[in-house]
Design a protein around this nucleic acid. Structure first.
Lengths: 220, 220
DNA sequence: AGAATAGTGTCTGTCAGACAGTATCGC
DNA sequence: GCGATACTGTCTGACAGACACTATTCT
């Protein structure tokens, strides 16, 4: 413990698993740490709570994301709080973990390959991460899967307009396993959150697919 | 903000909703606050994280409970983390909320009516609480109900040995609504967590009831 | 016998997985 | 027609609510 005030006050962080779908796989944004501790290692984007700036820990998380990625985040949700004296070598620390969802049509806008400071990694194989961030990532992914298993539709991972097949592929990416098309669509029929966009179709070398969007009052 | 260090470091608390079943209703332990802020008001037991004493925020919560109630707590679980600059008048604060379960045969051992510092209150009607603790309580109860709805058995709320009728009444108290006996027992049959205690029955003015206990590996 | 609670059997509707089938495009 | 993807229909088994039924004790 370098800092004696750590004996009185813990460090309080917000860490964010920013999730999106690329190549039909659920992916997470990783940031390479510029400074010690764990300099050079990949980690979830995170930062310290600033009481003068933030109205809540969610604000902290949104501020972190604003600094890393310059887009609006349509959805962010608290997952769990991790704590202990040894998880960060600077001293006793508290990390409030969030996951955030980013539409897949904005994924490439974020990460320019020239800047090697951030990258997208498959959540199934993120590589070695700094601190206890592998556990944090697993926790965040588990929370999202839980919600989708309970019939929530992760529309925030999709563009504004999407086909039902795209929605199904997105759910499959989140859950990491294939879903039955017939059963999937039967579930959707009961749902209120989906609105057909009249007259709009995606055309290709097949029967045209109807486009849908989230209904007005949609809350993930 | 009385303390200038609040501009740099938030206060970090663990707050605990200690839940049990009394009179066939889910109840929560409330503590009357001895000091400002909110002196004299009822609140969830809680206290500040002490980095020198606690190995995690769960340890903080257990330490708080040890000081309030002098029994072992069989189960404690993190629910959600609340934060903001105004929820505690001492300054920017973070409260990590837990719920803990106490077997109902140990409820009366805790609270002596002479000491007016703690009391059991129905979660459905806890009265006015200090800070944002009404929201915290609702959140904790919701988390427990969620888990029971997902077929977890709250055996930690029961004595070591119990009848299936007692188990059903406990679930009904948690959920706040009656359950169908036949459907409830059909669910239990599929479960691995219950072990029949051979030859032990509860007798009364009715057919004797088989006693059960939690299986060895039971995890709520 | 009757009250009281323990415990079971059965009907029915809902819903999910499985899988086969039909529809409509481009070529 | 054929390949490709969109979309639908139907069978079946699992399961939950509702509710009536039987079982065993004490008085």
């Amino acid at each position: 413990m370098n800092h004696p005030e750590r004996l009185l006050y813990p460090l309080v962080f917000a860490d964010v698993a920013l999730l999106s779908v690329g190549d039909d796989r659920l992916q997470v944004l990783l940031a390479r740490r510029a400074r010690e501790p764990a300099a050079g290692k990949w980690a979830l984007p995170g930062g310290i709570l600033k009481p003068a700036l933030d109205g809540s820990l969610k604000d902290t998380a949104l501020r972190i994301l604003r600094d890393k990625v310059h887009v609006d985040i349509p959805h962010i949700e608290q997952v769990h709080t991790f704590s202990g004296p040894t998880r960060d070598e600077r001293g006793w620390s508290v990390s409030v973990l969030f996951y955030a969802l980013l539409p897949r049509d904005r994924v490439n806008a974020l990460v320019s390959p020239k800047v090697a400071e951030v990258k997208w990694a498959d959540v199934a194989d993120p590589g070695r991460l700094a601190f206890d961030h592998e556990a944090l990532l697993a926790s965040a992914v588990g929370a999202l899967q839980d919600k989708v298993l309970r019939n929530a539709l992760p529309l925030h991972l999709l563009p504004e307009r999407f086909t039902l097949s795209e929605l199904q592929r997105t759910c499959e990416a989140v859950l990491g396993r294939p879903l039955d098309k017939s059963a999937f669509r039967r579930r959707l029929r009961a749902y209120q959150d989906l609105v057909e966009v009249p007259g709009e179709f995606v055309r290709g070398v097949q029967r045209p697919a109807q486009l849908y969007r989230a209904s007005e009052g949609f809350e993930f």
